[in-house]
Design a protein around this nucleic acid. Structure first.
Lengths: 212, 212
DNA sequence: GTATGTGAAACCGTTCACAGCA
DNA sequence: TGCTGTGAACGGTTTCACATAC
C-alpha cells in the first residue's frame, strides 16, 4: 500500500473496468470473487488486479478472495463514483444532443444540468429537459448550478475557446470529444474521447492485416 | 527501420495525431517541419516522433527536416487512411444517429453506407440519407455494400450479439461504443470507445485532487 | 489448502546522446 | 552547421513467485 505516490492512469481505468464487472457479479448474487476469477472476466492478469488494488489498501481475505459488495463499494469510493457529478455540455449538435440523452450517464450518477451553444436558433430549446443557454451565460450558470465537469462537443476549431470559457468559469475537469489537444492551466484535468483516432488505429490494423 | 516486428498501438495512435497536425501545417502552406517543431505541436518528445517513423522507413532529410506534404502522404498510407472505408452501424439510438450524421467521419474518408436496428418502428426510416435495415438483413447488406467496418452503438447487453452477427457476416474490424469487453475470434480487430471509463478517470483525478 | 499481498525479475516504451549525412 | 536515424540508458508497468494469512 503506497497511497497516491504515482498511481498510473491506466491502473485507474482498470479499476473502472473492475467496478463494472463487480456490479454484474453483484447483480447475479455472487458474494465472493477471487482475483483470478475477476481477471478472467476483465481479460487481465490476476497479479495486475492485486497490484492495482494494493495502491489503495488491502481489500481481500487470504485464502478466500474479495467480497463483491465490499470491493465494489471501495472501488467506487476510490474513483469518486460514490457521489453525483453535475455536468455542463458545450455544443448541442448531433453528438452533444446524443450525450444529453445518454441514459447510462445518469444511471451512473453523471447528471447533465446545463447545456450551452452559440447558435441563436438553439437557445431556449430543451433537449431531454435541459434548456440550451447562450455561451455568455456560462459563467453564471456554472456557478449557480454547481457544475463540476464540462463536456466539450463543439467543432474542433471552437474546442480551445470552449475550454478557455469553462476554465474561466471555474471548471477543473473537462471531458473533450473534439479531436484537438487542449491547452490549459495545470490544475485543470482533461480526458479526451477521440474516436477518429480509434478509427485510424482500426484501419491500420486492417490494412497491415496482422490479425488481432 | 524494423518493419512490422511489434509496433506498439500507442505509436500508431500518435501517427494519427501527427497526421492531424501535418494537415494543419499543409493548410497553412508550410513546406518543411522538423521533428522538434512537430513535437511541440503534438506535445511529445522529438525523439519519439523520429522513433515512431523509424518503424516504417526513413522519411526525413538530415539537416533539413520533413517535407510536410510528403510525410503526410506517407503516414496516411501507413494508416490505411489513403482510401475510403465503408462502415455499417448497428444500433440507431441517440448515439448511433449522431454518428451517422457526424460530418468529420465522411470528411476523412469514413463513409456509413448502412445502419441496422432491431426496433420495428425504426426500420425503413432514413438518417442522413442512410436507410435503417432490420438485423436480419445484416449478412446480405454487408456483403452487397462491401462494408468493411462495423460500428456498435447498441446497449451494453446487446453488444456481444451485435458483434457476433457482424463477425458472422464477415466483418474483421469493429469500433465498439458499448462499455463491455467483446469476445471475438482472433482475426477480428476491435477498438473500444469508452466514455464512461474516461469520466470515471476524470472524477478520480478531481476527487484525489492531485491537480493535472 | 487456498488466495492474497508484495519484493524481485522481466518486459516494454521513452528519452538521451551521438554518429551519420545533407 | 543542423537535423535525422538509432544504439544504449533509463524509467515505469506487468508478470512471476513466494511468503503470509485465513
Amino acid at each position: 500500500m503506497l497511497d497516491s505516490l504515482k498511481i498510473p492512469t491506466i491502473a485507474i481505468s482498470r479499476l473502472s473496468v473492475y467496478a463494472r464487472h463487480l456490479a454484474l457479479l453483484e447483480g447475479n448474487g455472487e458474494e465472493v470473487i477471487s482475483s483470478g476469477g475477476l481477471a478472467d472476466m476483465c481479460g487481465v492478469n490476476p497479479a495486475q488486479i492485486r497490484k492495482d488494488l494494493a495502491y489503495f489498501g488491502e481489500f481481500g481475505v487470504r485464502g478466500v478472495g474479495y467480497y463483491v459488495k465490499e470491493l465494489l463499494f471501495e472501488i467506487r469510493k476510490i474513483l469518486g463514483a460514490d457521489k453525483e457529478w453535475r455536468l455542463g455540455l458545450v455544443g448541442v449538435g448531433n453528438l452533444g444532443s446524443a450525450l444529453l440523452r445518454h441514459a447510462p450517464f445518469s444511471d451512473r450518477g453523471y447528471i447533465f444540468v446545463a447545456a450551452f451553444d452559440k447558435k441563436p436558433g438553439r437557445i431556449g430549446k430543451k433537449v431531454n429537459g435541459i434548456p440550451i443557454e447562450p455561451l455568455e451565460a456560462m459563467n453564471h450558470v456554472i456557478q449557480e448550478k454547481g457544475i463540476e465537469i464540462g463536456v466539450i462537443a463543439v467543432k474542433p476549431d471552437l474546442a480551445q475557446s470552449a475550454a478557455d470559457m469553462l476554465v474561466r468559469a471555474g471548471i477543473a475537469g473537462i471531458l473533450n470529444f473534439a479531436p484537438v489537444q487542449i491547452q490549459r492551466p495545470s490544475h485543470v484535468c482533461i480526458e479526451n474521447v477521440d474516436f477518429s483516432l480509434k478509427l485510424d488505429v482500426l484501419c491500420y490494423r486492417l490494412t497491415s492485416d496482422v490479425g488481432r
